[in-house]
Nucleic acid binder design. Sequence first.
DNA 1: CCTTGAACCTGCGGGC
DNA 2: TGCCCGCAGGTTCAAG
Length: 272
Amino acid sequence: MPELPEVETVRTGLEDALKGATIKKVELKRANLRFEFPEHFAKKLTGATIESIGRRAKYLLFHLDNCMVLIGHLGMTGRFSVEKPPKTYGKHDHVVFTLTDGRAVIYNDARRFGFMTLSSEKELSENVFLADLGPEPLEKEFSAKYLEIQLLRRSGPIKTVIMGQGLVVGVGNIYASEALFLAKIDPRKPAKKVADNSAELVKAIRAVLKDAIKSGGSSLRDFVQVSGESGYFQHHFNVYGRAGKPCITCHTPIKNLRMAGRSTFYCPHCQK
DNA sequence: CCTTGAACCTGCGGGC
DNA sequence: TGCCCGCAGGTTCAAG
């Protein structure tokens, strides 16, 4: 599910559902997801109360009352649902937290690119997964000036560069294409040469992400309660997944190509 | 340092 | 119906 807007949508839903909830039991249906669970994972979570749920980049941060933080990543296919304990669990239901109020928090992840780990509250910012991340795209630190400086020292194609989480977090494969369309920049253009357009690019990235968060929010309730798939593909994209279809602006067919192993969509006429 | 490509894993849809 | 191929929202690691 996961680019920043989807993770943010999940975060909001989980916080609504789980704030103040206490974990009574932790069940691991297998020894690992992408990584092994940390030592004493279940034990450290059992009895803890969830005080709040935050987000950094595409990571969910469950702040607990025992000075620990459960760090979760959804990978490509990770999903959380909060519901009455089902009679039987699905093939890819890997983690279950049973709450003291009887509800079950189920983490399902077919491809298992997601993972969970723990950090102390104190050492959170030095956590290996969080330490080297770039600024949040919707925060002030992600400014035109900052982006300009970053772009000037990169030689790779702009699309690949903005997807790197060290430069700015949260821009994944879909929204990279979408943001570049909005900013009218060819995804193949060397990052250096886009430095002059930093202000537009910052604006486009923010606009695309904000818009997606907004539309994700409306279908949120369904998302968390049922283990459904609302949100993502109901969203309308300008270029992503629209190869051969007319550009919404000039009607030129949208092109699709592969960059760094990822499919990329752009309008050859509008994006220079 | 930066960039690229392969790897991780499962499911789905298309073509034959 | 079934098999094979390519493809999918992300990140890490090794190597150039």
